[in-house]
Simulated scan of single mutants.
Amino acid sequence: MSKPFDMELFLAAVLTGSRATRQRHIRQAKLTQAEITERWQLKTPWAWQRKHVTWFLEHRLAGRCAATRFYYLLTERLLARRLEKP
């Protein structure tokens, strides 16, 4: 049995700012991971492609307000920076 993926440890290298901001990014990244895992069974961000993140931003956040979508976009940028992907 393998250990579950630790999103907090994964993002630790790129997280800056206040504690509340770091916790928000971690919470949002975990939700993104859960949704992508449920849809495509990809458990870690290393396996994700641009289409997976785009699907999450366009379809799962479609009914959210603009501010919420913006904060999720910031979190996705942190994930991309950590993965060293554009």
Rank of each mutant, 00 (worst) to 15 (best):
R39A: 14
E84W: 04
R50H: 11
H59M: 13
A62N: 08
T21M: 13
L61P: 01
R82H: 06
A62P: 06
R82Y: 02
L61K: 04
T16W: 08
R82P: 04
T37Y: 03
G63F: 11
Q41V: 04
M7P: 03
P4K: 08
L78A: 10
P4W: 03
E76H: 08
T68F: 15
F56P: 01
I36Y: 01
E8W: 01
A47W: 01
A29N: 00
L79P: 00
A67I: 00
F56V: 03
R81T: 12
L83R: 00
I26N: 03
K30M: 14
A66C: 14
W55K: 06
L11I: 00
L61G: 05
L78I: 01
A13M: 06
T75M: 12
L11M: 04
V53M: 15
Q33G: 11
G63Y: 05
V14T: 02
T75Y: 03
S2I: 05
T16P: 05
A67G: 06
T21V: 11
A66H: 07
E35H: 06
Y72R: 14
R82A: 13
E84V: 09
R69E: 11
T68K: 13
L57Q: 00
L9H: 05
G17K: 07
L83N: 01
A34Q: 06
I36M: 04
T16N: 12
A13V: 02
F5Q: 04
P4L: 11
T44C: 11
P45C: 13
E35D: 09
I36Q: 01
E58F: 10
R64C: 15
I26K: 04
W55G: 11
K43F: 09
L57D: 00
W48F: 09
P4Y: 04
R19C: 11
E35W: 03
F56E: 00
T68V: 15
C65F: 10
E58I: 06
Q49I: 09
E38R: 15
H25V: 10
R60H: 15
A80I: 00
A67S: 14
L83Y: 00
T54P: 04
Q33F: 10
W55F: 14
F10H: 04
R27I: 07
A66G: 12
E8D: 09
R19A: 14
K51V: 10
Q28C: 13
K51F: 11
L15T: 00
L78C: 11
T16V: 14
S18D: 04
E35S: 13
R82I: 05
Q33D: 05
T75H: 05
A66Y: 05
R24D: 09
